[in-house]
Design a protein around this nucleic acid. Structure first.
Lengths: 219, 219
DNA sequence: TAGATTGTTAATCGATTAACAATC
DNA sequence: TAGATTGTTAATCGATTAACAATC
């Protein structure tokens, strides 16, 4: 493997899925797997699996396949989920509260440290023992607690300003749930979850399916 | 345009983003836009925009560009968000509740009709005037109310069974938030929101950024 | 009309799949 | 050793970009 190979985003997006399937294999006490067998389970080509993995190193063994536990751990390392990240949530509405309660993210290394909102009715409330603070306190909080990542679950009108501030204050990553594209310095990683976009894709596909059926029934 | 051209998933996934940008243009009273100008705003090529749109029809005019409002409406039609879909949410935990409260989805045509859970403590509760029902009542409810779509926000151990049932009962689309891949008949559309996968992608990118910085500082 | 910009064909680029020598 | 399966190169396929004639 070459240390400096440019890894395409398509490959990166597939890694969590490999990780998920390997986790399931582990749960079922399966200790080894070939790219062929895994490809059948996942509905992809064996070639793609081998190509993808070999971007990061040779984790398999000729004639044997892959050791499930070893590969699982290696992918964890690649994904960086052995690290921990200190997290704040900005915007403690419905979605912010839901994410705050979702403990599975902690298992991926994302440790919730603070909650922020502008709404006086929310400020002072606690979720999982963490107090909701006024957004004015955010700068000092980030610096004192060395916050790495912010989940952005606030109204879209305020997102750009907040993202700008967070960038200034040294945030490393933003998990953005607002339906806007954030433009910040390339030093800050932005990962978007555009729920509305996802729903529109669903709408498109349902619609197309219905149109197809109509067309067929006319034949 | 050819009615039966196979549209790639990449194109479809870009449509909501076009729709979003056109909406912003409308808000700013911009009535016309060229592919060139839009490409600059969106950070893509003008060629890609024209190619994408021409999968569905010629919406522009030589020498003029595109009429923003017209194109906006046409994309809405393509996405099928002028239709309405009757929705239930299965699993009224944190995320299910958050989605139930999110009225923006209604604007996209997804009308919430029912909430279902197995937890006796949740059953009977109401959100936005909609009662949480026992999951045992789901079959009759779907048939009586002609439900089109289910949001799946229940624990992953139960998702596969529920998806199977819903398929049997004639659901058209599933918006799946569980970290599992659902396999149902091709008549049912599944759109996944894998939050955990998204978070791992964020982790990967932050990690890579840090490794790069380290490497640079050693030079 | 002249200038602008589309719709569309052709060229390029990148990602996926196939093939197979290396090797466990 | 013989069989299995990887890692990797080569071939194919599809998506993106460039170019330009058509036309408003």
């Amino acid at each position: 493997m070459s240390e400096n190979r440019r890894i395409s985003i398509a490959v990166i997006k597939r890694l969590p899925r490999y990780y998920r399937y390997l986790g399931e294999l582990l749960e079922n006490d399966i200790t080894r797997i070939s790219s062929k067998e895994l490809s059948i389970r996942m509905g992809v080509t064996a070639s793609q699996i081998r190509q993808d993995l070999n971007n990061f190193g040779g984790f398999g063994q000729q004639g044997y396949g892959y050791n499930v536990e070893y590969l699982y751990e290696e992918i964890a390392k690649i994904l960086g989920i052995n690290n921990t990240y200190k997290v704040i949530i900005v915007g403690v509405g419905n979605l912010g509260q839901a994410l705050a309660n979702y403990i599975k993210f902690e298992q991926r290394g994302f440790i919730l440290k603070g909650l922020f909102d502008v709404n006086p009715r929310l400020i002072g409330m606690t979720i999982r023992g963490i107090e909701v603070r006024d957004i004015d306190e955010m700068e000092s909080f980030i610096k004192e607690n060395e916050i790495d990542v912010a989940y952005l679950t606030l109204p879209k009108t305020r997102v750009r300003k907040v993202a700008e501030d967070l960038t200034k204050w040294g945030i490393k990553g933003l998990w953005n749930f607002s339906p806007v594209d954030i433009e910040v310095s390339p030093d800050v990683i932005v990962e978007d979850v555009h729920l509305s976009d996802s729903l529109m894709t669903l709408s498109y596909k349902i619609n197309r399916r219905m149109l197809r059926k109509e067309a067929e029934s006319k034949k």
